[in-house]
Design a binder for these strands. Structure first.
Lengths: 145, 145
DNA sequence: CGGTATCCACTTAGATACTG
DNA sequence: CAGTATCTAAGTGGATACCG
């Protein structure tokens, strides 16, 4: 949003909003980079990626079954799929111990760790604004009661 | 992740990751709050919400058709749906001018603005780590060539 | 202009069965 | 244990037509 005085927000609101933000956008991003970035973001804007990132952030290194225990609502298929995609994107490191039965461990890479840190702000936002969202929903839903 | 010395990351990697993060989690979140927060997050972890949040952040106040012009790939149905949900969640403010033909303007609420600020970090992360992700993908894809 | 309603193609994800 | 393969139910989103 432009930082001129057409802003519909008070200084206080803006300051509060900015408290969730660390850095400014880099200058002069090309439309091409823009598109790629949007691609990456929308690719990661996935329910399970979010949850698994959170779990690995909290617990460190986990086996496949241990992750599953932390997130029982996920199906085995989706867990495998999500982990595979995160591995492909360089977010998690998969270590296979060739024993019988096999043992596979997952942990965040440095890249995944940094993405987790970025997501932290969203998490904090959600906690701090949970009530406002709830109230907004109630207000909206009771408008046509 | 636990901050003990079992961490698989170097101090530098951790410092770098933390540069995307503003605040720590609040202490002692209950499992109940946890679930609600996860709900909100996964509810917002949606492709179009992300894009529209970005557009309104950049442009300020826009009419329905103006948003659509900024995001031509979206269908009218999804645009309406997404905007409606964002309005319900208190993220955007919808102003209807009862003229003929009707004119409807959308802008971020203070709540939406603060969520946008939080998402800013993800955006910055994507820009700065675009290349690493691309390389990781190439490496992964060429492993079984 | 800014929607809503309907229909339909396609994707997605859960359940189940099987395997190295 | 940690997957893969297959089938199917449900959900999602696009196209189209129409409306205040």
């Amino acid at each position: 949003m432009a930082d001129d005085d057409t802003s519909p927000f008070t200084q206080e609101e803006i300051a509060r909003a900015q408290s969730y933000r660390v850095r400014d956008y880099p200058e002069g991003t090309s439309p091409e980079v823009d598109a790629l970035v949007k691609d990456i973001i929308t690719g990661f804007a996935d329910k399970w990626t979010f949850v698994i990132l959170d779990v690995l952030w909290d617990k460190g290194t986990l086996r496949f079954s241990e992750i599953w225990r932390e997130v029982p609502e996920i199906s085995q298929k989706m867990l495998t799929q999500t982990l595979r995609r995160m591995e492909r994107d360089g977010l998690v490191i998969r270590t296979l111990y060739p024993s019988v039965p096999p043992k596979v461990e997952y942990r965040l890479s440095a890249l995944g760790l940094s993405l987790g840190a970025a997501f932290c702000n969203i998490w904090v936002w959600a906690i701090e604004n949970l009530d406002d969202v709830r109230k907004a929903r109630e207000r909206f839903d009771s408008r046509d009661a």
